[in-house]
Simulated scan of single mutants.
Amino acid sequence: MSSSTSVPITSTRPVWLVTGASSGLGLEVAIEAAKLATVVAIGRDHHGLELAANAGCRTVELDLRASAEHVSSVIADIIKTAGRVDVLVNAAGYILEGAVEETSDAELEDIFHTNVFAPIRLARAVLPHMRRTGAGVIFNVAGIGGFSGSPNAGAYCSSKAALATFTEALQRETGPLGIRVCLVQLGHFRTAFLKAGHRLHTALRIVDYDPVLDPLRKAFNGLDGHQPGDPGKAARALVHIASSDADSIPTLLALGSDVVPAELSAHEAKRQAFLAHDTWTNSMGFDA
Score class of each variant (00 low, 15 high):
M1L: 14
S2L: 11
W16S: 02
V18E: 01
A21Y: 00
S23K: 07
L25V: 00
I31K: 15
A33D: 07
L36I: 14
A37S: 13
E50H: 11
E50G: 10
E50Q: 12
N54W: 03
A55E: 00
G56P: 04
V60R: 02
H70V: 07
H70Q: 11
D77W: 05
I78F: 00
I79K: 00
T81I: 08
A82G: 07
A82E: 04
L88H: 00
V89Y: 03
N90T: 02
Y94F: 14
I95G: 11
L96F: 06
L96Y: 03
E97Q: 14
E102W: 00
T103S: 08
L108G: 03
T114A: 06
N115G: 01
A123W: 00
R131N: 01
R132S: 15
A135C: 12
F139P: 01
G143W: 03
F147Y: 11
G149A: 14
P151R: 01
A155F: 04
A155G: 08
S158D: 05
S159M: 08
K160R: 15
A162S: 14
A162L: 06
F166I: 11
E168R: 14
P176D: 03
G178K: 07
I179D: 00
V181L: 06
Q185T: 12
L186G: 00
H188C: 08
F189Y: 14
T191N: 01
L200S: 09
T202L: 05
V212P: 06
L213E: 03
D214E: 13
L216R: 10
A219Y: 09
L223A: 14
Q227S: 06
P228Q: 04
G229E: 05
D230N: 10
D230Q: 07
D245V: 12
S248R: 13
P250F: 05
L253R: 02
L255M: 05
G256W: 00
V260L: 15
A262T: 14
L264R: 13
S265I: 05
S265D: 14
E268M: 14
A269H: 12
A269M: 08
K270I: 11
R271S: 13
Q272F: 12
Q272K: 15
F274R: 12
L275F: 11
T279H: 10
T281H: 13
T281L: 15
T281E: 08
M284H: 11
G285M: 11
G285V: 09
D287Y: 09
A288R: 12
